[in-house]
Design a protein around this nucleic acid. Structure first.
Lengths: 129, 129
DNA sequence: CTGTATCCGCCGCGATACTG
DNA sequence: CAGTATCGCGGCGGATACAG
């Protein structure tokens, strides 16, 4: 235990926080999982989009850009026409996949227990009767 | 690979999505980590608050409630005066800690690489000059 | 000590339209 | 095909005040 630095580890700019922020956005983990599980770590934008139809073009690009910036994917532009852009997991990103997959495994292993819970009393309606 | 269910696994109400939503809120992972790493899986509200001074009372309660609802912590009210409320990790929650800790480990192992990246070109300012 | 209620700013994210 | 710009809404989350 470090008596002098109880919570200093939670500075906004520390590595853990930076990573957590990645996953605080809606699509990061799904894009990461999809890229890895369904595209073997390398896919074009359109292919990813087909695997994740629910994501908007805007958020797909934005999410991938943040991931690129975090060093977990690379972005390669092939100067063809029409242009083709390929996203590939970096070794760093591949190592990040493992814990993410564990979370998915956890969720699936306990889906019964999770389903037994009420839908979600979260977010109360203001004008609710 | 399941050719017939390309993205049906991403229904809003499936277990993986439900879990991801937990971590899409700002404090869940930090509360989980803190409860486990600094309080041995069991702590009173005030103690947690002391370990995470940056969180507001409101968000601490709200986050813990969502975690309770997800079955990863229990909430025990001791009818004393003043009241004491104790939050404890469930076995389910304890198993969820592992992948979370791996993410922290990943972040710490690669903090150098992460630090080498630009601050964050994310979130562009709208009215920027 | 623990928790709820209210107000409110900020920004994540979707929809749409447009560029190369 | 890939990406950007813009608009608008919903809701996360902080501050504050109050209750048991």
């Amino acid at each position: 235990m470090k008596p002098g630095s109880p919570e200093e580890q939670w500075r906004e700019d520390c590595a853990p926080r930076r990573v957590l922020e990645l996953f605080s956005t809606k699509w990061t983990s799904m894009v990461l999982h999809t890229l890895w599980a369904r595209h073997d770590g390398c896919a074009r934008s359109a292919a990813l989009h087909r695997s994740l139809p629910a994501i908007s073009q805007k958020m797909l690009t934005q999410t991938l850009r943040e991931m690129e910036h975090a060093g977990i994917v690379t972005r390669t532009v092939h100067p063809t026409v029409p242009p083709a852009v390929e996203y590939a997991l970096t070794p760093l990103g591949t190592r990040l996949v493992e814990p993410i997959e564990l979370i998915y495994d956890w969720a699936r292993s306990n889906s019964e227990a999770l389903d037994a819970l009420q839908p979600r009393p979260t977010s109360r309606r203001r004008g609710g009767t």
